[in-house]
């Protein structure tokens, strides 16, 4: 089926420029297309006219790399639950729809151009402690330490975060707690992650604050926006670890 749409797209030349919405028609859009393919079609038309295409981030187009992500009618990644922008298909839109497309809005994610934002603050949070310090060659035999399946599974539930930033965009305070708690939980549940567990959470939170992300006030919009189902329970778990670390002193055996 073919549908016609009106797009209102945020255009901004560079980090220091002012942006504004520009309206484009998107005509004869096949409903089998993905949302990004629809933008490709609009961009091809713009370029044929010699205009600059709408810049947006994307790569895998399979919902796993975390590159894509825009606000679609005020919702991060659009209306479909558990769906990244690249996996959203046009059959969820109707002929005549108007669609407002904006970048993630957060102080810690400055806009670089149009719909592209700088999410390197996430990388710096990981650099501050989101790892297990196991140098290459350190490892013992993999099956030497059995890990209960329930724990491995739960750790995996947290590890699937794709780092897209939708949680920050959804949060009224632009907090990065869901992202940070997913990593703290992934590593903190595993026996290998224990030695650095309390140190890790403190460092990551400190870095998060330093990057200008807001505080978490238990809104829960982050969970609703997450394309891979990261749960707010992980934030509660992070808070418990943080409290324990503060009370007992990070890194001391008593914290364990």
């Amino acid at each position: 089926m073919l549908i016609n749409l009106t797009l209102h797209v945020w255009r901004q030349k560079g980090p220091k420029d002012n942006g504004r919405f520009v309206t484009y028609p998107a005509l004869q859009i096949n409903t089998h297309m993905s949302f990004l393919e629809m933008l490709d079609v609009v961009n091809e038309q713009l370029m044929e006219k010699g205009e600059e295409p709408i810049a947006f981030e994307h790569d895998c187009r399979e919902g796993i790399c975390g590159s894509c992500g825009v606000m679609i009618n005020g919702l991060p990644h659009g209306p479909n639950p558990m769906t990244a922008t690249c996996q959203l298909h046009m059959r969820y839109f109707k002929d005549g729809d108007e669609i407002w497309i904006e970048p993630w809005r957060a102080k810690a994610f400055p806009v670089l151009r149009d719909l592209v934002v700088d999410r390197s603050a996430f990388d710096r949070i990981i650099q501050s402690g989101g790892f297990i310090s196991a140098n290459t060659g350190n490892a013992p035999e993999a099956n030497a330490m059995p890990i209960p399946k329930q724990i491995a599974d739960r750790s995996m539930d947290a590890a699937v975060c794709i780092g897209c930033g939708a949680c920050v965009a959804a949060c009224p305070n632009a907090s990065a707690m869901l992202f940070t708690s997913a990593k703290v939980t992934h590593l903190g549940l595993l026996p290998q992650g224990q030695p650095e567990r309390y140190e890790r959470v403190q460092r990551m939170i400190a870095r998060m604050d330093q990057e200008g992300f807001g505080n978490c006030s238990n809104h829960g919009s982050c969970e609703a926006a997450c394309p891979v189902g990261i749960k707010v329970d992980f934030i509660a778990r992070l808070n418990r670890d943080l409290l324990k670390a503060k009370l007992c002193g990070a890194g001391t055996p008593s914290a364990v």
Partner: peptide, 22 residues
């Protein structure tokens, strides 16, 4: 062989059996 050991040590949550083994 070493790759699996290294990845597990880093915290890669590979699928496990109920026994807890990989």
């Amino acid at each position: 062989l070493n790759i699996i050991d290294q990845c597990v040590a880093q915290g890669v949550p590979f699928a496990r059996e109920y026994s807890g083994y990989l």
